[in-house]
Amino acid sequence: MNIEFVQNWFSQVKKGTLSYIILIILDEKEYYGYELVQEIKIHTTLEVAEGTLYPLLNRLKTDGIVESKWIEQESGIPRKYYTLTTEGRETLQEMKKIWSTLETAINKLQK
């Protein structure tokens, strides 16, 4: 097996699916950054530097897919909560259809 090839391929898959995973998680409820990272870690085996999530969230925000708000905490350190916009929910539905089609196609090919 070519380990390097597989690692590169997995790195590309990870890069391409992280935004989809974030949208699926945010569809459930609003999350703050740290909590979102932990949720990704719980549900997937993706090992990402936690800080890489923020450029991605900023890009999703610029594209109008998520929105954010600061909420003050008793500790004095506020949390920034992210939530899906209406456009974000519609985008996620479309992504789910594409993912499902792709999954079916790959499953057929693998048989």
Binding site: Y32, G33, Y34, E35, E50, Y54, P78, R79, K80
Partner: peptide, 16 residues
């Protein structure tokens, strides 16, 4: 904005 977000993340990480 970036400083507050990093600070918030580090704070939450040290608490959990």
């Amino acid at each position: 904005e970036i400083m507050m977000e990093v600070n918030s993340h580090i704070y939450e990480a040290t608490q959990n």
